[in-house]
Design a protein around this nucleic acid. Structure first.
Length: 568
RNA sequence: CGGGGCGUAGCUCAGCCUGGUUAGAGCGCCUGGUUUGGGACCAGGAAGUCGGAGGUUCGAAUCCUCUCGCCCCGACCA
């Protein structure tokens, strides 16, 4: 294939190792190398290139290099994770996206139970007065609360419905539940024998954000919030850090997103917390994303809500509380950490579908042949009982699905739709399914199948005799590990040191990513730096403290090192 | 909330400047046929209160006013 063309019609996006990437007007990115010898009839300008490969064949996804923000939205649209709602700032989480949230919930909930927590549910509506009890808390959330002021609609003079039945006290829709939970804990906790209280809730919250972005920042979002009360400050601190560790382990093991654990500066901490800890992740565009937070609330909320208990010393004292949460934002993190120009890539541990089987046949005879082979394949992977059970299930979109792991809700599907195999390949590739299996007459004859790996788009021929649950599990685990390694290498390659403020500015401007430096946290200084660089202190990382150095801003001696980055 | 851009079929958009039959195209969707190992082709078909409201006009997708929404940038934030 000697396709040569003029780059006149393309915008050259970069050049590395003699390979040119170009964005064509149709939004497709292609890679070219210069053509050495002339003689092609379509010669137009002084340059000619040979098409090496289409770096992006995705018709409906803008390449990351062209427009990262649009790429993110295109990936969500193409993989049908979410859709816009008629209400500004809200999103509809579609089945494909919700299944990922369910996988996150299932995994995290197990980890919460393993650390002794129980689930409960507190209501959506909170008396407005509750919010005002903790001074910093009001200040932090007052600006983004949705308020319920009326209890009904009535027909007005012009026949149109108008709000009526004004409430005596307005209710706010929870932006978080510290206040109402504090109120309840005050009633439930009387004695040190009632402690610790270790409750979590899975729910929705609402923060009336100015600017929203699917998954990353929506007005309403789903999350979990853990709220605990303890007898001593040491226990509370231990709990705060324990849950931060749970989040970090979850992010790395299940989402394959390496994170940096650390503390927030006072400027960045949760309104009402004594100390906020966080896990920070790095996205492919070199911007940081806070993926989870854990707060030591000290006695701030127990004093505001009067959570008192009679201690072992017979004295009445305030409890020590914590709270911690992660949200559907994690899905945004997952997308931005792993996906590519072809579309979504889901880490196997949270993938609702782990394999998509694409049958290939021309005639009814070939179809029967391929069908029999696929059934054998499915029996080997999912068991005879599951294959039989699947026959009695309704198949969504006419696509039968088989449980590979029922407890983890992981399925294998067979795409029998009346479409061309190529279409099906792109279809499942865009949706980030970890593996695809291609089964055609040639494969059946050879007792094999073609296994295609989403992560690197590689393919290999696998003998049917090799195929077994453990084999697939090992394949999935290997991909999971590879994704984590890849993300970690990217993250590590994007942590740079700066010894001066000028160096910080330069590094942020040239590379983005995390910049580590000695710094004495200070609200005014941080605001100024943010103003000048758009970067904030993401955290005071646990690793690497205690080494003396000079604060990049004030020049004063300090042993505190922080990570700066532009963030979502 | 400030600045910029955009709202016409499910999606991407043309038409608007200069108002005038029945509002178009590509993709997608449906039907039939030929096809099928990385995005097929032919034929036929369904689909739009031109974001909404008001105004100007004999007549508005087109001009004017207001309004709503989306995207990008800033301030705010998990």
């Amino acid at each position: 294939m000697c396709k040569s063309l003029s780059l006149r019609d393309c915008r050259c996006a970069g050049n590395g190792g003699g390979v040119f990437r170009a964005d064509s007007p149709s939004g497709m990115t292609r890679e070219f190398r210069p053509l050495a010898s002339a003689g092609c009839p379509s010669y137009k300008s002084g340059f000619r290139f040979v098409l090496i490969r289409n770096a992006s064949m995705a018709k409906n996804i803008k390449p990351r290099a062209t427009d990262y923000a649009q790429w993110y939205l295109d990936v969500i649209a193409a993989s049908q994770l979410a859709d816009y709602s008629p209400v500004k700032g809200c999103m509809v989480i579609r089945p494909e996206g919700y299944a990922i949230w369910e996988a996150i919930q299932r995994d995290l909930d197990r980890r919460f139970k393993d650390t002794g927590h129980v689930n409960a549910y507190f209501p959506l509506l909170i008396p407005q007065s509750f919010l005002t009890k903790e001074a910093e808390h009001v200040e932090g959330f007052a600006m983004e609360c949705a308020i319920v002021t009326h209890s009904k609609l009535q027909k007005g003079a012009d026949g149109k419905l108008v709000p009526a039945g004004e409430l005596e006290e307005p209710l706010i829709i929870r932006p978080t539940s510290e206040t109402i939970i504090g109120h309840m804990y005050a009633q439930w906790i009387q004695s040190y024998r009632d402690l610790p209280v270790l409750i979590n809730q899975w729910c929705n919250v609402m923060r009336w954000e100015m600017r929203t972005r699917l998954f990353l920042r929506t007005a309403e979002f789903l999350w979990q919030e853990g709220h605990t009360a303890h007898e001593t400050p040491e226990e509370a601190q231990e709990e705060t850090l324990r849950m931060l560790d749970v989040y970090a382990a979850f992010a790395e093991e299940s989402l394959a997103i390496p994170v940096i654990k650390g503390a927030k500066t006072d400027a960045e901490k949760f309104p009402g917390a004594v100390t906020t800890y966080c896990i920070e992740a790095l996205m492919q565009d070199s911007k940081a994303l806070q993926a989870g937070t854990s707060h030591n609330l000290g006695q701030n909320f127990s004093k505001a809500f009067d959570i008192k208990f009679l201690g072992r010393d017979q004295k009445l004292q305030h409890a020590w509380t914590t709270s911690w949460g992660v949200s559907t934002r994690l899905i945004g993190a997952m997308i931005m950490a792993h996906s590519d120009d072809e579309g979504l890539i889901i880490p196997p541990k949270v993938a609702p579908t782990v394999v998509a089987i694409v049958p290939i046949f021309r005639s009814p005879e070939e179809e029967a042949k391929v069908k029999g082979f696929i059934e054998t394949l499915l029996v080997q992977l999912c068991g005879q009982a599951e294959v039989d059970a699947a026959k009695t299930r309704s198949a969504r979109n006419g696509i039968p699905r088989y449980f590979f792991d029922k407890a983890a809700n992981q399925q294998i599907l067979v795409d029998w739709r009346d479409a061309r195999p190529g279409d099906k390949q792109y279809h499942w590739e865009q949706r980030g399914i970890p593996f695809r299996m291609e089964v055609g007459p040639r494969d059946v004859d050879g007792g094999a199948l073609v296994l295609k790996k989403r992560l690197d788009r590689s393919k290999e021929i696998v003998q049917l005799t090799q195929v077994a649950p453990d084999w697939l599990r090992a394949k999935l685990d290997a991909v999971q590990q590879e994704m984590l390694d890849k993300a970690r290498a990217f993250r590590d390659g994007n942590i740079r040191a700066a010894a001066s403020y000028d160096e910080l500015k330069k590094t942020l401007a040239e590379h983005g990513g995390f910049v580590r430096c000695h710094f004495i946290p200070n609200k005014e200084v941080e605001a100024k730096i943010k103003d000048e660089t758009k970067a904030t202190v993401r955290c005071i990382p646990f690793d690497g403290q205690g080494v003396a150095g000079k604060c990049i801003y004030t020049g004063q001696e300090t042993t505190t090192q922080v990570l700066f980055a532009q963030a979502y």
